[in-house]
Design a protein around this nucleic acid. Structure first.
Length: 287
DNA sequence: ACTCTTGTTAAAAC
DNA sequence: GGTTTTAACAAGAG
């Protein structure tokens, strides 16, 4: 379940591994992934990736060339990028399990890009919710405009966050999941942030006190930044570009911890449904 | 066979 | 127009 820290981990690794490498070919294995663009590879041939940006959980690729060319990539639930250098070993000083390297491309590979130096980049996506398709500058701008502010930015406006909550009556969890309100949080970090701020997920957002809302803003920022530092969280599917797990899994306080003691007060962590999502919280210390 | 998993969006209600 | 809720998408795990 890639959220902001997982997508940022992928972005940083891809920037290190494939930026400015010339694309000499590739293959589309599943047309829906590229929005049925039959010229997806043809448009890339001879270009290289000039920049990889991210807003929320969306990756934005900029390619070199006389005519502007961009691509938007969303990992959704099971999207993965795997980089394999010409020796067949995953780059970046890590090693994917040997079995994985040998089977790439595998049955979940949707797009492959071949670089001039013999290395390859694979976009895998088991459940086919993700996409990796070309976009115009206007389409990129439209996509960017849909996102709210990012808690990880240095100019994250907590006052705007706090006053925004006052206008929302739905569950605070639903509001935090709304990418147009704040960008980058998903099911894992919402539960973690609410635990850190001691707020119950089902509370109507408008009922949060100024103090609670401020604590929540700071908690959201803190958990996201802490996770980026350790390469994100692997709960079910996430792997980095070298096939490695994220290490924030070791720091989770409530997500997936139902039926175990709360690390803060010892009460048993509950799992219920809020905003249509599995939700983990401590009924004793979250109010 | 059936339930559960989640990020986003379309659609409809308010 | 903004907010809210629900269903749909898809494929695998249990």
């Amino acid at each position: 379940m890639p959220e902001l820290p997982e997508v940022e981990t992928v972005r940083l690794q891809l920037t290190f591994k494939v930026l400015r490498k010339k694309i000499v070919g590739g293959k589309v294995y599943h047309q829906k992934t590229v929005q049925h663009d039959t010229r997806f590879i043809a448009k890339l041939r001879g270009r290289s990736i000039d920049a990889i940006d991210r807003i929320g959980k969306l990756l934005i690729f900029t390619f070199t060339g006389d005519t502007p060319l961009y691509a938007l990539c969303h990992l959704k639930m099971t999207g993965q990028f795997f980089y394999v250098d010409k020796t067949g070993v995953s780059g970046g000083g890590h090693s994917m399990t040997e079995a994985d390297v040998r089977v790439l491309p595998n049955k979940h590979t949707r797009v492959a890009l071949n670089f001039e130096d013999g290395s390859n980049l694979y976009f895998n996506d088991m459940r086919l919710f993700g996409y990796f398709h070309h976009a115009s500058a206007a389409e990129v701008a439209t996509a960017r405009a849909k996102f709210g502010q990012e808690p990880t930015h240095d100019d994250f406006n907590i006052e705007q966050f706090v006053s925004g909550l006052k206008k929302r009556r739905s569950a605070i969890k639903a509001v935090l999941l709304d990418q147009s309100f704040v960008a980058g949080l998903g099911n894992i970090y919402v539960d973690e942030a609410l635990f850190a701020a001691k707020v119950r997920p089902m509370r109507s957002a408008a009922t949060l006190t100024r103090k609670e809302a401020t604590a929540l803003a700071k908690a959201a920022r803190a958990v996201l930044l802490a996770s980026v530092e350790v390469g994100g969280t692997t709960f079910q599917h996430f792997k980095d570009t070298g096939g490695e797990n994220g290490n924030y899994t070791d720091y989770l306080q409530v997500f997936g911890k139902q039926k175990t003691p709360c690390p803060r007060c010892g009460a048993i962590i509950l799992k219920i449904r809020v905003a249509g999502r599995g939700t983990h919280y401590c009924a004793q210390c979250q109010r």
